[in-house]
């Protein structure tokens, strides 16, 4: 017999599985299926609940949809003249989240590229752990930093009359978005096959050329998803902006840059600070839920746009 040949035990019986294993497996399968379906059930249930609470407002005499969307007068508890206009809050949300995204995206894409392409293995691990730690800081802590530390800095360096404003909220929010965008963007860059890099290197491309010409186009979808998740966080964040933006119902004044130093209030912060006091089933309560519906629609639009853009990119390729 040749020394290297392998002998198979062809007569070994096929493996028998115990009843526990068979039953257990089907139970596990059902559980996993339920876990998967639960996301749909939860979203539908939340959708139903918010709409159910908000919808009866359309029957109220004091409410008109035009006023709700386009008036800046927010007087939900007035004793003389109740007005529900959230235009200022919509503008406030857009200002703060917009600024946050503008600040956060270059920083996070930069650090994602650095972590995935340029730095050594030690620095890489250290950075990844620290960035994950940054993502774990509770938003109320960020808010507190915004209220006490950065607001004083904003006043000192910009000459603003009040430190809690769009700039302050935007910077705090950007700091909160950076870890999320960075870690997802870094994953997207890591997912680009090494053969791309090797091929580019073999053709004599520099590191920067590889990043700019090869990696960024190849990871486009993932990067876009990262940015949009950051946008979602920015729009939906509550506690930090509640504390850091000044919570003032007004459209920030002063173009082109003056508005950045004005205080605003965001939709989420408004719901958070007022829902607790609004008597259940009152008009005020329902209007706050309607604001929730509006937020729902905004995030839905962001996701939909993301989806369409990603599909568009795929089709071109």
């Amino acid at each position: 017999m040749p020394p290297n040949s392998v002998r198979f035990k062809a007569e070994r019986p096929p493996p028998r599985r115990s009843t526990i294993a068979v039953v257990g497996e089907s139970i596990l399968e059902t559980l996993i299926r339920l876990a998967g379906m639960s996301a749909i059930i939860f979203v539908l249930a939340i959708f139903y609940f918010i709409f159910k609470e908000a919808f009866p407002i359309f029957g109220s005499e004091e409410f008109s949809l035009g006023e709700f969307l386009f008036s800046t007068q927010w007087y939900p508890t007035s004793e003389t003249n109740v007005r529900y206009g959230i235009a200022a809050l919509i503008v406030g949300t857009m200002c703060v989240s917009g600024l946050a995204v503008v600040v956060a995206v270059p920083f996070s894409l930069g650090s994602a590229i650095y972590i995935s392409e340029f730095c050594g293995p030690m620095a890489k691990e250290a950075l990844k752990i620290i960035i994950e730690l940054l993502a774990a800081i509770p938003s109320v802590v960020w808010g507190f930093i915004g209220l006490t530390v950065t607001s004083a800095l904003v006043m000192k360096y910009t000459g603003a009359q009040v430190g809690i404003n769009v700039l302050n909220g935007g910077v705090i929010l950007a700091l909160m978005c950076v870890p999320i965008i960075t870690s997802i963007a870094e994953d997207a860059l890591k997912a680009v096959p090494d053969s791309y890099r090797e091929a580019a290197m073999a053709l004599g491309a520099t590191r920067w050329q590889i990043v700019y010409k090869i990696l960024l186009p190849a990871a486009k979808n993932g990067l876009l998803a990262a940015v949009l998740l950051g946008v979602g966080r920015a729009v939906g964040e509550t506690m930090a902006v509640l504390m850091a933006t000044g919570h003032a119902v007004q459209i920030p004044q002063g173009l082109p840059f003056g508005w950045i130093l004005d205080s605003v209030r965001t939709l989420t912060a408004n719901i958070a600070s007022e829902l607790g006091e609004a008597p259940t089933q009152s008009d005020h309560y329902r209007v706050l839920f309607l604001t929730g519906v509006l937020l729902f629609i905004i995030t839905f639009m962001v996701n939909l746009t993301a989806d369409l853009v990603v599909r568009g990119i795929r089709r071109k390729q």
């Binding site: 209220l147 006490t148 607001s151 009359q161 009040v162 430190g163 205080s263």
Partner: peptide, 21 residues
Amino acid sequence: LGSRDMNGSKEVVELVTGTPC
């Protein structure tokens, strides 16, 4: 409209402390 609506008694005092206007 446009007043800074703080969420606590103490925050009012804190904001006034740091804001001359």
